[in-house]
Amino acid sequence: MSNNSPEREEVSIPAISVDRSASLGSSAQEALNDQGAPVAQHGAREMEAQNLHIWFGNNLVLEKVDLVFPANTVTALIGPSGCGKSTFIRTLNRMHELIPTAALAGKVLLDGRDIYSPDVDVTQIRLKVGMVFQKPNPFPAMSIRDNVLSGLRLAKLPAGDKESLVEECLTRAGLWTEVKDRLSEPALALSGGQQQRLCIARALAVKPEVLLMDEPCSALDPGSTLKIEDTISYLSDSITIIIVTHNMQQAARVSDYTAFFLAQYGEPGRVVEHTTTSQIFSRPKDPRTESYITGKFG
């Protein structure tokens, strides 16, 4: 079946338009290989997984993952439930090892250095690679302001000018105008979408190089989702973002690159396809990718 046949046109997805193809190359000058996937430059704010294998106990859940996340880009990780996307993203800031039986082989590089090398301080990695979780998890005992500053307190970083830091982080997370008059109210007084943006602001306060987002909008209404997507676009000028999402439109709207994960029955998860978002949504190379993004399974 040729890519130009009329049938091909029918399976394309009119609801998904890729906004960000134009910005690619303007914000960053990445090299692409012949598959369309980015090539590692080992520079600042770049993350890379090299031949990564992940286990829980004796169970191999991800096999041979090679992914490059270029500096100041957004990469969406898509794939059906249970294919190891969340597990993968948690290896990027060493949250993986908090699960007792977790193990891995291969390398994860940040700024060209292996974050799993024995001389690395894990708390430093988590400061450089921030994370936003599926369910908003502001600290309930703290006010909005204290939540933003909580990272400094938890990691014992020097605070500097707290008020301007709070304003800066809340502004970057797109929340400042909504909360600027009630910074000392408890964080739980906010709506779910606001809480999630507060969690983004909290992650930004420790000045990370990379931000991991594990289905950040899955618990939110469409309006809040759009606000968070705006925040993602805005942040991607200065930070590398890796986002797990089940929402194809969201992947198409916010990301520069997309990686499709798939775990076939009885096998560990693998990366089926990794290329620019515009390509994966318009001309997917692998038929399984095409089936997934057109909603035939998953």
Partner: peptide, 27 residues
């Protein structure tokens, strides 16, 4: 103590002692 709060603290670069002092004990 909710796991999501513990993970949230660790994800912000907390040591175990800082996590306990700021999350577990207040809870």
């Amino acid at each position: 103590t909710p796991l999501e709060l513990i993970q949230g603290a660790y994800a912000l670069g907390a040591t175990r002692a800082a996590m306990i002092r700021n999350i577990v004990l207040p809870f």
